[in-house]
């Protein structure tokens, strides 16, 4: 699975960066950037929980 981010939806709450600073960052405009989209097998639930915290629903998991 891979993480995809929609900067159009992002509103910069920073929840993703708090959850996984190794995976997410914020651009100079304060919008989400995915540093590493790969979700290792077995880690799906952890990432679903992280994505679920995004208040603007800007992140999703894709096969």
């Amino acid at each position: 699975m891979r993480i995809t981010a929609d900067q159009e939806r992002c509103l910069g709450a920073g929840q993703c960066v708090l959850s996984a600073p190794d995976r997410f960052d914020q651009s100079d405009l304060g919008l989400v950037e995915v540093l590493d989209p790969e979700v290792p097998e077995g880690d799906e639930q952890r990432f679903r929980d992280i994505l679920d915290l995004c208040p603007s629903q800007a992140l999703s998991l894709e096969a």
Partner: peptide, 8 residues
């Protein structure tokens, strides 16, 4: 305002 309130 977002750029002033990032985690960084």
């Amino acid at each position: 305002l977002l750029s002033s309130f990032t985690v960084k």
